[in-house]
């Protein structure tokens, strides 16, 4: 698989990077050189290895599947100007019909 200038333009767009046309060529060349070394992985028989290893990996921190409070360094009540029933109260947007009534 060879990386082309179009590939670099495409991934730059995905990655929100504006790369000038004049600077594309070195990236094309470097990505091809780097990915060339990655081809060695295709020689390794590895099917299913990831799933088996994940199950056996020691020390992996797993949380229980329950909904709880999000841990924060400061409680929301300490930095929110106002709260009601667990939600932040904020000024109404001016575009709302009843703007001016306040929160």
């Amino acid at each position: 698989m060879r990386v082309t200038p179009d590939d670099v333009r495409h991934v730059a767009t995905l990655a929100r990077l504006s790369i000038p046309e004049g600077e594309l060529a070195p990236y094309v060349e470097q990505l091809n050189a780097i990915l060339g070394h990655m081809e060695a992985l295709q020689q390794v028989p590895s099917s299913g290895a990831a799933a088996a290893a994940d199950a056996a990996r020691p020390g992996m921190a797993l949380r229980a599947d329950v909904v709880g409070a999000v841990p924060l360094t400061r409680l929301p009540t300490e930095f929110a100007p106002a709260m009601r029933e667990g939600f932040f109260l904020v000024p109404r947007l001016a575009t709302h019909e009843d703007a001016g009534e306040g929160a």
Binding site: Q42, S46, A50
Partner: peptide, 23 residues
């Protein structure tokens, strides 16, 4: 990183790398 995660290359690069990482 964006390239190896993009459609068409994910299995060849990223998934393969995760499998070899496990080995």
């Amino acid at each position: 990183g964006t390239y190896v995660l993009s459609a068409g290359y994910y299995d060849a690069y990223y998934r393969k790398a995760q499998e070899v990482r496990a080995l």
